[in-house]
């Protein structure tokens, strides 16, 4: 079946079966490899993208369920002012170890800061708790979110 979806501001037509998860449409049909496959079951958040600005697990959203909602991926997140700030903070804090989960982390963090520009620690934890980092870079993820939000740096971490 043909589906028309809007990805990072561009209308794209893809040929896929209706139950194909958005993740695999992005990765294998549109050759956008930024969203990652980690568990296929919403446990890890490596595949996080935005639908109309809300973070979702693209491994578990069928292409037929996307509809007219705007898809934003890590490849396009830098186009938003908040997304760009988050990316920069991620680099300044040197968040990554292996880096595999970080696209998903950045997508969740950007959604948080777009909705809640000055989050509390508890709000950060709540927004980020669904994103696993197997290297456990959590202290720096937290520090980068604080930096992007213009909050004072924590003593812990870097």
């Amino acid at each position: 079946m043909a589906f028309s979806i809007k990805v990072n501001g561009r209308q794209r037509t893809v040929e896929a079966e209706a139950d194909t998860p958005l993740l695999w449409v992005l990765r294998d049909e549109l050759n956008m490899k930024g969203a990652k496959f980690g568990c296929g079951a919403t446990f890890c958040g490596a595949c996080t993208v935005h639908l109309d600005g809300a973070p979702v697990r693209s491994c578990s959203i069928p292409i037929s369920g996307v509809g007219a909602r705007a898809v934003t991926t890590i490849e396009g997140i830098g186009a938003s002012e908040v997304g760009k700030r988050v990316q920069e903070a991620w680099m300044e804090v040197d968040v990554m170890q292996c880096g595999y989960c970080q696209a998903g982390q950045i997508m969740s963090a950007t959604a948080l800061l777009t909705r809640t520009p000055k989050p509390t620690e508890a709000q950060i934890t709540q927004a980020m708790n669904g994103n696993l980092c197997r290297c456990a870079t959590y202290a720096r993820i937290r520090a980068a979110i604080r930096k992007a939000a213009g909050l004072p740096a924590e003593a812990a971490g870097v």
């Binding site: 956008m32 490899k33 890590i74 490849e75 990554m96 696209a103 950045i106």
Partner: peptide, 22 residues
């Protein structure tokens, strides 16, 4: 302290992992 050399590629979602090979 030197930043990871693949930082920019990672935060912009560039295809640098094994799973990304085409």
């Amino acid at each position: 302290p030197i930043r990871n050399v693949d930082s920019a590629a990672v935060v912009t979602g560039q295809p640098i992992f094994g799973i990304d090979v085409e």
